[in-house]
Design a protein around this nucleic acid. Structure first.
Lengths: 230, 230
DNA sequence: CGGGGGATGAGCAAAATAAATCATCCCGGT
DNA sequence: ACCGGGATGATTTATTTTGCTCATCCCCCG
């Protein structure tokens, strides 16, 4: 089940990421963990569902969102291959506090809570991978929180775009995302679409971002990061 | 009427938390980890310092804050006994991205990054404690982030007060905090002191909170939580 | 070709928030 | 008792953000 998609593999492996070989590691879960394929825009679990398993994202992008009592929706994070999600159940959460859905086609592995608990106890490799995952997730959440605590929505949008650009691609000349609409951006940034529209146009006239013919979005990281520093 | 902190230790130890026996566990670090005592309001580390160790808080309260490029300060979290902090170094952070200082008198254990890495690898107990810690920290950050993403500052203040109340005391009749000033609240909530002042008075006239003679703050959780739900 | 329908750009009034200022109040030290 | 400083309450003004509304643009479908 080794997945090599043509050319990309070598390039990715020799990139900065000193990451663990999670493909092999996750394979050792065989027996208790179930692999599954999802098309784009499918629901994996919803807020309020019973939480008895966590997931590992092997391929694709997954969106984690929360709906408020008033019906407003916020996108908490966009996950990429190599990340866990739904791990709240390990901390005693009985119900999902957020919803997860696929953004692109995805391959994921579902791991029962009890199995994961056992693996964490028995396998160093697993617990180290998991600790690494939790640490970086933590750092990202902390960054998001700080961002919200003292940046304006314009800066938050800039930061969101930069994060998407960096996560999305190593090479700067590729589009950030094959179509991410303003509504989603608004939910990630925590503001309204109207505001996103205004800032995106401002950024575009300043050359910080650019739209491709096919709708893809290009981000000039160097220029855009200036927004964050003033 | 009030409880002295001089020898209030007994009361604290008999809490009902089903938590791991971290006292014994941390003791096994002997040799590489250094215990230290801090008075209130001392700096443990500052943003930008080299990061080569993490800390475990055995007693007291610690404040984690971040200062922006513009000089604004935000309080990211208030930690209680039994929590780690400064663990970003394990994820490869070379410099502190936040500052840590004591709020009350504290006992803490400093654990070198390399030692911690070894312990995580060798001791199940340690890695399980750490994973548990990271999971709950994650959940708290996620909650904070969601709160910021779609609540007004009034609701955020209400939520902050509730969190302080629950963390601070099991019994509802004890003050949340022996003096937490409006400036700090503003930095936790992500707003201005003026605004905190206004909301606190509103909450007080509505009976949601009350000031004790000694300056302590009482929170009526039941009433205050109504604010969050409307 | 024409008509939805979704996504986007733009504008505006109302609400929320930030920023700055001043008056009190309280407490500790002298 | 007196003073000084810090914390708080209150007010005013400027700015930001929201919550709409409406006009375009563009792509897909009939």
């Amino acid at each position: 089940m080794t997945k090599r998609n043509g050319n990309g593999k070598v390039a990715i492996l020799k990139k900065k990421k000193p990451s663990v070989d999670w493909e092999g590691l996750i394979a050792t879960f065989a027996g208790g963990a179930k692999h599954a394929e999802y098309g784009a825009n499918r629901t994996i679990f919803s807020q309020g569902n019973p939480a008895d398993a966590l997931f590992f994202l092997r391929k694709g992008k997954v969106k984690i969102s929360v709906t408020s009592a008033q019906g407003k929706e916020a996108i908490v994070s966009i996950l990429n291959a190599g990340e866990f999600f739904g791990e709240g159940c390990l901390a005693g959460q009985l119900l999902r506090i957020s919803s997860a859905s696929t953004v692109t086609d995805c391959s994921l592995t579902k791991i029962d809570k009890s199995l994961m608990a056992r693996m964490l106890h028995e396998r160093h490799g697993v617990s180290e991978l998991f600790v690494t995952h939790l640490l970086s997730r933590n750092i990202r959440f902390e960054g998001d929180l700080v961002d919200q605590l003292f940046n304006s929505s314009e800066k938050r949008l800039a930061r969101t775009l930069l994060l998407l650009a960096h996560f999305g691609k190593e090479s700067k000349s590729e589009p950030v995302h094959p179509r991410i609409n303003q509504e989603d951006l608004a939910q990630m940034v925590g503001t309204t679409r109207s505001r996103i529209s205004k800032f995106m146009n401002k950024f575009r006239t300043l050359g910080f971002v650019d739209y491709a013919d096919n709708g893809g979005l290009f981000v000039n990281s160097g220029l855009l990061s200036v927004v964050l520093n003033d």
